[in-house]
Design a protein around this nucleic acid. Structure first.
Lengths: 183, 183
DNA sequence: GTCTATACCTTGATAGAC
DNA sequence: GTCTATCAAGGTATAGAC
C-alpha cells in the first residue's frame, strides 16, 4: 500500500476512534515513521485529509452495493448490518457517528461530503427496504424512507452506546433491529 | 443566575453545539465578558467543567422523572421524547450523542459520569416501557431493556442525522418512533 | 518524497496583584 | 472574584535543503 493510501486509512481510524478534532498530524506521522511535513506533502490541509477519508468511505460503500447486487435483499440488509458489527469488533464508530456531532466545526468541503455520504447510504437502504417489503421479506409500518432512517440510526448509535455502556449493548441492538424488520 | 451556573450552562451549550474537544475557555469567557483566568477560578481544569455539565444533566433528568411520576407512562414517554424535540429546535444534540464519539479522549472522571448518565436514563426508560406494556399502553416485541436501547438510540441519532440531512429528518424519526411503540 | 527548521496561533493552566 | 501577565505545550502549516 502506498503512503498516500496508508495515510487515509490511518486518518479514518483516528477519526472513528477519537474524533476529527482530537487527532493531529502527529498521530499519522508517528505510526508511519515519517515527519509532520511529509504528511502535508500529500494532504496540505487537515480538511483535504478529511475529505479524502469521506470520499474513500463513499467509494467503499458503492463497491459493497455492487458486490451485493445479486443477493436477495434480506441478505443485502444483513451484509450491511455486518459492516457495523465489524466496526464494533474493531472498537470503532462509523464515520457518520463520528462526524455528525462535530458537523458545525467542520470545513464546508467536509460538510458537503458528509451530507453526500448520508444521502447515498439512505437512498440505497430505502431502495433495499422497499423491495424487501414488496417481496414479503420484510414487515414494517410506515414509509420505507422513515424505516431506513431508523435502521441506520440504530446501527450508528449501537456503536456509540456500546462504547459507553459496554457489555452486549451492540449485540442486543443488532439482534432486535433485524428481528423487528425480518418476517 | 450566578457566574458558576452560567458557566455550566454555557459549557453545556458548547459541548452539544461543537463537541467537547472543539470548545475552549475562550468560548465561555468571551460571552460572559470575563477573562480566561476567572473561569479557571470556578473550574480549575476542563475536566472539572465537563464533570459539572454531566452532573447537572443527571440532576435535571432526575427532576424530570419526579415531575412526571404521576402521569400515565405513555405520557411520560412522550414528555421524555419532547426533551429531544426541544434540543432539536435549539439545534443541539444530546449530551450522550456529543460525548459518546469522543469517549476515548475523555478524562476518566468524565467517562464514569457519562456511563452513569446512560445507565440512569436506561433504567428509567426500561421501567417506563415495562409498565406501559403491562398496562396495554405499549406494544412491542422483545425485551423491554432492548426496546429502551432502541428508543434512546432513535432520539439520539435523530438529532445527529437531522444536523447533517436537515429537512424534516427529526420529525420523521420522532413520529415513527412513537407510532412503533404506541398501541 | 522526505527531511530540518521554523513561524504562528490557540490552548489549558498558573502566579500574583487588586 | 476578577484581573494582568505569562507559561509550556501542542497544533497547523510553510520554506527550502537534500
Amino acid at each position: 500500500m502506498e503512503t498516500q493510501e496508508k495515510l487515509v486509512a490511518l486518518a479514518d481510524r483516528m477519526i472513528r476512534m477519537q474524533g476529527y478534532n482530537a487527532f493531529s498530524y502527529k498521530d499519522l506521522s508517528g505510526p508511519m515513521h515519517i515527519k509532520n511535513a511529509a504528511v502535508h506533502y500529500y494532504y496540505p490541509t487537515k480538511a483535504n485529509l478529511g475529505v479524502a477519508v469521506i470520499d474513500q468511505t463513499i467509494r467503499e460503500i458503492n463497491q459493497s452495493k455492487q458486490r451485493w447486487a445479486d443477493l436477495p435483499v434480506d441478505q443485502q440488509l444483513e451484509q450491511f448490518a455486518q459492516l457495523y458489527a465489524r466496526d464494533h469488533e474493531a472498537e470503532l464508530v462509523c464515520l457518520m457517528g463520528s462526524l455528525a456531532p462535530d458537523y458545525r466545526t467542520l470545513p464546508e468541503t467536509m460538510q458537503a461530503k458528509v451530507q453526500q455520504m448520508g444521502e447515498e447510504i439512505l437512498d440505497w437502504l430505502t431502495d433495499c427496504i422497499t423491495k424487501g417489503r414488496e417481496q414479503g421479506l420484510f414487515h414494517f409500518k410506515g414509509d420505507p424512507y422513515d424505516r431506513a432512517l431508523l435502521v441506520i440510526s440504530t446501527l450508528l448509535s449501537a456503536l456509540l452506546l456500546a462504547r459507553v455502556l459496554g457489555g452486549d449493548t451492540f449485540q442486543r441492538m443488532y439482534r432486535q433491529l433485524l428481528a423487528d424488520i425480518m418476517v
